[in-house]
């Protein structure tokens, strides 16, 4: 199993950061296409999970809600719109409620928070309601992923997590929210596996 080539920092406590560069990246081409596709499948499960997708929304700039007891995702209550700035600057800054704190532990249904300024992901990173093919194409398109190759994507995850940003928060969201599937470390590893396999997309 290719996972043996990956060395991860031990990260298990909520809010603790993944150390940058903790991961030894596999050689490009050392991962089979099938393993890469399997890794993408897991990535897809993560990025379309409400913890991630709810703030990776489209150009209406309206985040989604699906915390404990909301059932299906619904538009954020209170008529919230993050604006083109994606930080609410035009209207109500996200940080009015989503304060910046390394302490992710909130009451259920309180405003979740993490260690950097709360915001929506850039609009070109839209995941909410998108298909495998659409998300795969977006993730590998430097025009729409922040100008990153696959190594850049891994670094991005590690860096964000080191700041206690949304990547770290997604797996320790507090407030009885469902965390994203599996672990942060596995997600980073999957990103590396998928990249080393040549970022294969689903065939369908």
């Amino acid at each position: 199993m290719q996972k043996s080539v990956v060395i991860l920092a031990a990260v298990s406590i909520a809010g603790a950061a993944l150390a940058e560069g903790a991961l030894t990246l596999p050689e490009e081409g050392s991962i089979s296409r099938a393993d890469g596709q399997a890794a993408f499948e897991r990535i897809y499960e993560v990025v379309t999970h409400p913890r991630c997708a709810n703030c990776h929304v489209g150009e209406d700039n309206i985040p989604m809600w699906s915390g404990p007891s909301y059932g299906e995702a619904r538009p954020h209550g209170m008529h919230i719109n993050a604006g083109e700035s994606r930080i609410g600057a035009e209207f109500l800054p996200c940080q009015t409620c989503h304060v910046t704190s390394d302490d992710f532990d909130t009451a259920p249904h309180a405003a979740p928070r993490f260690g950097i300024a709360w915001q929506l992901a850039p609009v070109e990173f839209e995941w909410f309601g998108k298909s495998r093919a659409e998300i795969c194409a977006q993730l590998k398109d430097p025009e729409r992923n922040g100008g990153r190759d696959w190594r850049g994507l891994v670094e991005h995850l590690e860096h964000d997590a080191s700041l206690n940003g949304p990547v770290a928060w997604g797996w320790s969201p507090g407030g009885d929210r469902d965390p994203a599937p599996r672990t942060l470390e596995e997600h980073v590893e999957d990103m590396a596996l998928w990249g080393a396999a040549g970022q294969p997309c689903p065939t369908d």
Binding site: V99, D103, H109, A110
Partner: peptide
Amino acid sequence: IAQCGACTVHVDGMAVRSCQLPVGD
């Protein structure tokens, strides 16, 4: 839980729900 806004104060001029802000932050 930041649902009503009755606790709103300003921190350096920006509106903040004071029920959400750990004083340590």
